[in-house]
């Protein structure tokens, strides 16, 4: 860690009247799995496209490996691997031919390429499907092929733009494990998603985006510390009087309560044994309840508290 691999400085991108990126800045260090989290339309893909010089931007500067990123900086491009949201493979070529084609755009030597292609196939577990055409592959296998095409040339920086959209849980886990493995092998990863669980699971540092702006950045713990909420209790209660709700609100560290559809939510800011305190109070007042559980804050809570809306509101 330590070397800055990607530096985005004050980036502005407009689509006519719409500001897609609003003075967006970011620094990514070598060896990180950096998560770009935000709802659909928050500017994640635009950031990636600007980063890759697929899109021209109106203002700002992008540096990768210490060099200004331009459409003709092929030295930098050689070290980047991309895995797009939509599967980018040829239906007319077999699994092997597809990986060989994309690897061949970077690696000229045939022997080296053959070795790299075989390694990429083994990495994503497609050994039994090398002669298959993409149309014969399941959704999960197709995503794995998409990843293999992006990483076969062993890039130092791998950019994954929502690689798990519409993927079954088993394949999703396999993909996430693969990303962590690539990182262990030395690659720096930029991972965009609107699935907070994935980002929480694999990313070492996260930037949360909304409306083209970076609204928060840090490790997941740092992000969670930024907000008031430390714990949320959920208790199913058939009948709860206003008087009882007031008593709960009066407990220490409670800063918000919400009772609807026989479901009570109590949010705490600090404090210990909060669940026991609430349940004791309910028992003392002969209020019956069926189920109670406690949750630590998630990135969704971070996003909710900062923006006033949930990450998946727009889905």
């Amino acid at each position: 860690m330590g070397n800055t691999i990607v530096k985005i400085d004050n980036l502005v991108k407009r689509y006519k009247e719409l500001i897609a990126l609003d003075h967006f800045s970011l620094e990514i260090e070598e060896g990180e799995i950096f998560g770009l989290l935000g709802p659909n339309g928050s500017g994640k893909t635009t950031t990636i496209n600007c980063l890759l010089s697929l899109l021209a931007y109106d203002k700002g500067n992008i540096e990768i490996f210490g060099e200004k990123m331009t459409p003709v900086n092929y030295k930098v491009k050689k070290e980047i691997g991309i895995i797009m949201q939509n599967v980018a493979v040829f239906d007319e070529l077999t699994v092997y031919e597809n990986i060989d084609y994309f690897c061949g755009l970077y690696i000229k030597d045939k022997e080296t390429r053959r070795k790299y292609v075989d390694e990429a196939i083994a990495f994503v577990g497609l050994e039994d499907f090398v002669k298959f055409y993409p149309k014969k592959l399941s959704g999960g296998l197709l995503r794995r092929l998409n990843i293999a095409c992006g990483i076969a040339h062993k890039p130092k920086l791998i950019i994954l733009d929502e690689p798990t959209v519409a993927v079954d849980p088993q394949s999703r886990n396999k993909i996430l494990e693969g990303i962590q493995e690539l990182n262990k092998q030395g690659a720096t990863i930029i991972y965009t998603s609107h699935y907070m669980e994935e980002v929480e699971q694999i990313c070492t540092r996260i930037a949360i985006m909304d409306k083209g702006k970076k609204i928060a950045e840090g490790t997941k713990d740092e992000l969670k510390r930024m907000i008031k909420n430390t714990e949320t209790l959920t208790i199913e209660i058939l009948d709860l009087s206003d008087e009882m709700l007031e008593k709960i609100r009066a407990l220490n560290h409670v800063y918000e309560t919400d009772y609807s559809d026989s479901r009570l939510e109590v949010r705490f800011s600090g404090g210990k044994h909060n669940l026991i305190h609430v349940l004791n109070l309910l028992q003392e007042n002969n209020v019956s309840f069926s189920r109670a559980y406690s949750e630590l804050p998630t990135l969704n809570d971070v996003f909710l508290e900062i923006t006033g809306k949930a990450l998946r509101d727009k889905e």
């Binding site: 890759l52 010089s53 697929l54 459409p71 003709v72 092929y74 030295k75 491009k77 050689k78 980047i80 991309i82 797009m84 939509n86 599967v87 980018a88 493979v89 040829f90 994309f102 755009l105 970077y106 095409c149 992006g150």
Partner: peptide, 16 residues
């Protein structure tokens, strides 16, 4: 020239 394939090819080290 399919959008996704073209994007991947443009991002590679092969010149336009």
């Amino acid at each position: 020239n399919r959008k996704e394939i073209k994007a991947r090819t443009i991002c590679s080290s092969i010149t336009a």
